[in-house]
C-alpha cells in the first residue's frame, strides 16, 4: 500500500466504520423487533405452544431436522409440516403427529432412523401446536414448495 495511506488512517476507518455500522445495525434491529408482531403472530402463542417449543428443544429435534431452514439437514424441514402432513387442519395434524411419533423407530433396514422419544399424547399435542404456530409465521413465502 502506498505511503499516503497511513496506519492511523486505516485505524480510523476501522473504528469509525465499525461503530457507524454497529449503530445502524442496532437501530435496524430495534425497528425489526417492533415490526415483527405483525408477521410472527405472537398473539397466537398459547401455553401449549410454549410447552411445545420446550419439548422441541429438550429432545433436540433440531439435531436432525431443519425448522424454517435452520438446523440439521438429515431429516425433512418441519417449518411447514403442518401443511404437508396435516393439510393445514389442526385436528388432522395432531392425529398424524401422534401416529407418527408412536411408530418410531420405523426400523426399515438401512433407512435413516428417528428415535422413540416416549412422549405422552398431551406432549405430542403441544408439539403439534408449536409446529402449527411456526407454520403460520409469515416468512416471506419460504419455502419455495410444500416439500420444504
Amino acid at each position: 500500500m502506498s505511503e499516503t495511506f497511513t496506519k492511523s488512517m486505516a485505524r480510523n476507518i476501522y473504528y469509525g466504520g465499525s461503530l457507524f455500522f454497529l449503530l445502524i445495525f442496532l437501530g435496524l434491529t430495534m425497528h425489526t423487533t417492533r415490526e415483527m408482531p405483525k408477521t410472527d403472530h405472537r398473539e397466537n402463542i398459547t401455553p401449549s405452544v410454549v410447552r411445545g417449543k420446550a419439548l422441541w428443544e429438550e429432545n433436540n429435534c433440531v439435531g436432525c431436522h431443519t425448522l424454517i431452514g435452520e438446523g440439521a439437514y438429515f431429516a425433512p424441514e418441519l417449518g411447514n409440516v403442518f401443511y404437508r402432513r396435516g393439510g393445514g387442519d389442526s385436528a388432522a395434524f395432531r392425529g398424524f403427529l401422534n401416529g407418527w411419533m408412536a411408530a418410531q423407530p420405523l426400523n426399515v433396514p438401512g433407512r435413516r432412523q428417528m428415535p422413540q422419544f416416549h412422549l405422552t399424547e398431551q406432549q405430542v399435542n403441544d408439539l403439534a401446536d408449536f409446529l402449527e404456530w411456526t407454520a403460520k409465521i409469515e416468512v416471506n413465502q419460504w419455502p419455495p414448495n410444500i416439500e420444504g
Binding site: A10, I13, S18, F21, L22, F25, T32, E35, T39, N140
Partner: peptide, 22 residues
Amino acid sequence: IAMALISGILGTGHHFYWLSTP
C-alpha cells in the same frame, strides 16, 4: 478488520431473509 466489521455486521441480514422480518 475494518472491512470485516463494516461488511459483516450488516451482513447478518443474510440470515433475516426468511424470518418474519421486514
